[in-house]
Amino acid sequence: MAFSTLRDKCERGFLDGQFLIAMPGMKDSNFARAVVYICAHSTAGAMGFIINRAQPISFTDVLLHLKLMDQQEAIMLPGDTRDFPILAGGPVETGRGFVLHSDDFVSESSIPVSDDISLTATLDIIRAICNGRGPARATMLLGYAGWGPGQLELEISSNGWLNCPANDELIFDRALEGKYERALALLGVSPEMLSSEAGHA
């Protein structure tokens, strides 16, 4: 599913608002030990973001690249703003930025993805974050994960993913280390259990 179809989507799939947690046997290296938050799922496909993979650039780098401020202005930003998390959201359109955020920030381009979380992919939210007017909780992601019609369902049936209802605290948790294990814990599962089960498949 392309990001552009998310705005037009009205039907909801059973994976909307779910976490996908990669099984140990995941063959696609893009998704090894990945936790994916699914924002849209329908007969047209699925779209979501990896929420536990660091991006090797900083928020300051993004601001300078977008020419929203110069080096001196960036240095003057509060530390919390400079440390705003940037994640590698997935292998599709990796040069494009998206912000997942709490629904206390709304712009014309914001798309609700759950009762409490919205998605904005325009510069107004970046400016708002810089000016201290951004959402209470947010994370920026470069790129996204997308699947064509029936593709994700096939991967799940082939034992590629576990799924469970998403947890907002985990989505916005800045501690990436151990997030995979914390996502599995939502299902009452540990990585060791998965490894042993995979060995007997």
Rank of each mutant, 00 (worst) to 15 (best):
W161R: 01
N131E: 15
L123M: 07
I171W: 01
G146S: 14
R127W: 05
A121T: 12
P135I: 04
Y180D: 06
A175F: 04
E153F: 11
G148A: 12
P135D: 10
I125M: 02
R182P: 07
G146D: 04
Y144D: 03
T122P: 02
G150S: 03
E177R: 13
N159V: 08
S158W: 08
S157Y: 13
S158A: 15
R127N: 08
E181N: 10
I125F: 02
C130M: 14
T120E: 03
R174Y: 03
R133Q: 15
P149L: 04
L154Y: 14
A138P: 02
P149M: 06
D173M: 06
L170F: 10
L142W: 12
D173E: 13
A145R: 03
N131R: 14
P135N: 09
T139S: 15
D168P: 05
E177K: 12
G148E: 13
D124I: 06
L152N: 02
D168A: 09
L154W: 09
R137F: 11
L142T: 14
D168F: 05
A121M: 13
Y180I: 07
G146C: 14
R127E: 15
A166G: 11
P135S: 15
S158N: 15
A166R: 00
E181F: 03
L154I: 07
N131G: 12
F172N: 01
R182C: 07
I125V: 15
L152F: 13
G143N: 05
W147L: 04
R137N: 12
A145N: 04
G146Y: 07
L162N: 01
I129F: 00
A166K: 00
R127A: 11
S157F: 08
A166Q: 00
N163M: 12
G134H: 01
R137M: 13
L162I: 13
E177V: 10
G132W: 01
G146M: 07
Y180R: 07
